[in-house]
Amino acid sequence: MHEPVVDGLEEYLAGTLAGQRLAAFQHHVTVCGECRRLVAALPAQQAMLSELRPPRPVGPKPGFYARVWARIEAERASSIWSVFLEPAFGRRLSYAALALLVVLSVAVWNGPGQPAIDETNPMVVFAIDLPDAPGVDPGHDRAVVLTHLVSMGENGDEAPSLPVSSD
């Protein structure tokens, strides 16, 4: 829309716009009120901005680096938590936390659930009664086996083999 001015404005201000581009620029300015107003205001705008140039070369007093370093040390000492505010570290920390969350979620989702209990299988029913795995409580194992053998003998069934502790 304002292409000739957008394209040539900086060169126009520098006084280096020439030839056909200058002609196109000038033509656009004559037909476009908005650009005419802008171009007319630019010398004032440039003069205003030049107010921000320091009047002469300036610099800090000697020992500036030492003062900067002292400030860095002071800031570092003031808060150990500031390390978490460092963008790079903070980003890594966020990724690590996210990764941990994903791993934990997957583990919980796919973890061992409660096995289905087949109550028609006597071995399973029997095992449910055991407080611990065989061998953990030998006394209890022995009592269970004896009870089982007695009940088998009474029914005339063949006793199934059960894991029993060695002692």
Binding site: P54, P57, V58, P60, F64, Y65
Partner: peptide, 11 residues
């Protein structure tokens, strides 16, 4: 340091 100081002083 001079550049930074000069920008700030200008403002």
């Amino acid at each position: 340091q001079n550049k930074v100081y000069s920008i700030i002083y200008g403002i």
